[in-house]
Simulated scan of single mutants.
Amino acid sequence: MNDRHDRSIAVEAVDLVKRFGDFTAVDGVSFAVPTGTVLGMLGPNGAGKTTAVRMMTTLSEPTSGTARISGYDVKDEPDAVRRSMGLTGQAATVDELLTGRENMAMIGGLYGIGRTALRKRSEELLEQFSLTEAGDKTVREYSGGMRRRIDLAVSLIAAPPVLFLDEPTTGLDPHSRNELWDVLRGLVAAGTTLVLTTQYLEEADQLADRIVVIDAGKIIAEGTPLELKKQAGAASLVTTVTHAADVPSARALLDQVSDEVFVDEHARTLTLPAGGLADLTRVAALLDESGIAVDDLGLSRPSLDDVFLSLTGHLAEPSAPVADSDSEGASA
């Protein structure tokens, strides 16, 4: 790593701007990612996430501002940046006519890795990604989940300290998505820094240490998943009574705790704002003393869906492929 910069910061965006004619796709984006952590870039399709990643990975030149990867400036030291990071895009970039091992040998050769070391590294990655048995099959024979895993494995052939993942689980079924999440957690545990763009709110919640929410090219919020959830409102205490006939009695008890009790008689639920475990304990004691049977009682925090809606005014959209070309960067 370049000694001129703080080793504790693996990725730093500094007032990044990208314009396409009169359209500003990225407008003054700045953030820092500590080494060995995961930053989730969350936003709807067209928010500017992919364009920001392209600038940070030297695929597109910033209109203004810059970024540093492992201390290297993307504008002044692009070759050093490329040696310091890996990139997995929205669509698999491996050659479908080659086998998994052949793809790894091709990319490893481009990095100048020696034959013996390359063979050893390839086998390690194939095993890590559960692809050893499929290593000699052509990629066109792989399932969608296998293709994403071989694409990720290839991006790690040179063991980069930083990995950019642009919507890595787009199009995967839930089982394949969970498998890939487990792999990513393992990479972070081993010290890799991840920058993850996603429209899947659950994915950001599961993987990210910090999240930046991007809309219309600007960062509109930043924080840990819990910090962002707190912005969407306080936690709620939700009680589900066993018998519908007990709903009015439960309502009378909960009115002692809060003057904002919402009742859904059909679902037999009563919901009120909660300050924490003290309210939960108090409600549990009141219900128990009154002999009201309860099916469920617990605290419910706002989800990232609630955060997204409160920040952007709309729900997250389903993921859609985005063209890689700069000429289509306005869609990124």
Rank of each mutant, 00 (worst) to 15 (best):
P318Q: 13
D6Q: 09
G313K: 09
G46F: 01
A332Q: 12
P273M: 11
S300R: 14
T170C: 02
P302G: 10
R7G: 14
G112D: 10
G298V: 07
R251Q: 15
E124F: 06
F23S: 13
T193K: 02
F129D: 00
L309W: 04
D205I: 08
T170F: 05
A25M: 10
D73P: 07
V74E: 02
V283K: 05
S60L: 15
L304R: 06
D76C: 03
A274G: 08
A245V: 14
G144I: 08
S331A: 13
A235F: 00
S303A: 09
D95W: 06
E127Q: 11
H314C: 08
E77A: 14
K137C: 09
A252G: 09
A25G: 12
A267N: 13
L87Q: 02
A80S: 14
F164D: 02
D288F: 07
A105G: 01
E127M: 06
A232V: 04
G144C: 10
D279R: 04
T269W: 06
T93P: 00
T239W: 02
A278I: 10
A204S: 10
R54G: 02
H175I: 12
M85K: 01
R140T: 08
A189I: 05
S30N: 12
G145E: 08
I157E: 05
S122H: 01
T37A: 11
A235S: 15
L118Y: 08
L118H: 05
Q256F: 00
L299M: 10
K218P: 00
F262C: 03
S290C: 03
M55K: 02
K120E: 15
T116Y: 04
G71E: 10
A189S: 14
V188R: 14
A267M: 13
H5P: 00
A13L: 13
G36M: 09
L304Q: 08
V74Q: 03
V188W: 04
D173W: 06
P160S: 12
F31T: 11
H314L: 07
S176F: 04
K75L: 15
D22P: 10
L311C: 03
P78F: 09
R4I: 04
S8L: 13
D95T: 03
N178H: 15
R82S: 03
V38N: 03
E124G: 10
G313D: 12
V294N: 06
I220N: 10
G36P: 04
A25S: 14
A80C: 09
V195M: 10
N178F: 12
G217Y: 01
P168I: 02
V33A: 06
V29Y: 00
V154E: 03
V139Y: 03
L299F: 08
E96S: 08
E102Q: 14
M146S: 05
L277F: 13
S258E: 11
D22Q: 15
L110G: 11
V53F: 12
G108P: 03
V212H: 00
P225M: 07
V33Q: 05
T240Y: 02
D15H: 12
I107A: 11
T242Q: 11
R185P: 04
G114N: 09
K230E: 14
G186F: 09
D255F: 08
I150F: 03
D324P: 01
S8I: 12
G144M: 10
D27I: 09
T138R: 15
H5R: 15
Y200K: 05
V213C: 08
W181H: 15
P44G: 07
T37G: 12
A274R: 05
G186E: 11
R54I: 04
G28K: 12
M104N: 01
G65M: 09
F20L: 15
A232N: 10
T169C: 04
E328K: 09
